[in-house]
Amino acid sequence: MRWFLLIFLLLGLSISAQNTVSWEEGMDSPIANLKQVEWMTGHWKGEAFGGITEEIWSPPLGGSMMFSFKLVVEGSINFYELGHIKEVDGTLLFQLKHFDGDLGGWEEKDETVDFKLVKIEDDKVYFDDFTLERVSDQEVNLYVVIGNEDGTQEEVQFNYKRQ
Rank of each mutant, 00 (worst) to 15 (best):
residue 147 G to S: 11
residue 22 S to I: 12
residue 143 Y to T: 03
residue 52 I to D: 04
residue 74 E to W: 14
residue 81 E to F: 00
residue 21 V to F: 15
residue 132 L to P: 01
residue 37 V to M: 08
residue 64 S to A: 13
residue 147 G to P: 10
residue 73 V to E: 13
residue 37 V to Q: 04
residue 55 E to T: 07
residue 50 G to A: 09
residue 119 K to N: 05
residue 139 E to G: 01
residue 104 G to C: 08
residue 101 G to I: 07
residue 20 T to N: 06
residue 139 E to R: 14
residue 31 I to C: 06
residue 93 L to R: 05
residue 48 A to Q: 10
residue 51 G to Q: 02
residue 68 S to W: 01
residue 149 E to Q: 13
residue 132 L to K: 07
residue 25 E to H: 14
residue 56 I to A: 10
residue 81 E to S: 01
residue 115 F to L: 05
residue 83 G to C: 00
residue 115 F to K: 14
residue 16 S to T: 13
residue 88 V to A: 13
residue 25 E to S: 15
residue 67 F to N: 03
residue 144 V to R: 13
residue 56 I to F: 05
residue 112 T to D: 12
residue 90 G to D: 07
residue 65 M to R: 01
residue 91 T to A: 11
residue 73 V to C: 06
residue 83 G to W: 00
residue 151 G to Q: 10
residue 109 K to D: 15
residue 17 A to W: 11
residue 101 G to M: 05
residue 105 G to W: 09
residue 136 S to W: 11
residue 61 L to R: 11
residue 46 G to I: 01
residue 97 K to S: 08
residue 39 W to D: 12
residue 141 N to D: 10
residue 52 I to L: 13
residue 92 L to K: 03
residue 104 G to I: 15
residue 126 Y to P: 05
residue 131 T to Y: 09
residue 80 Y to H: 02
residue 27 M to T: 14
residue 119 K to T: 11
residue 43 H to C: 03
residue 69 F to P: 09
residue 147 G to D: 07
residue 104 G to M: 09
residue 147 G to H: 11
residue 109 K to Y: 14
residue 105 G to F: 09
residue 83 G to H: 04
residue 80 Y to M: 02
residue 122 D to M: 09
residue 105 G to C: 09
residue 125 V to P: 01
residue 36 Q to V: 00
residue 71 L to V: 00
residue 138 Q to G: 04
residue 114 D to N: 15
residue 75 G to C: 07
residue 37 V to G: 02
residue 71 L to S: 02
residue 145 V to W: 02
residue 131 T to N: 08
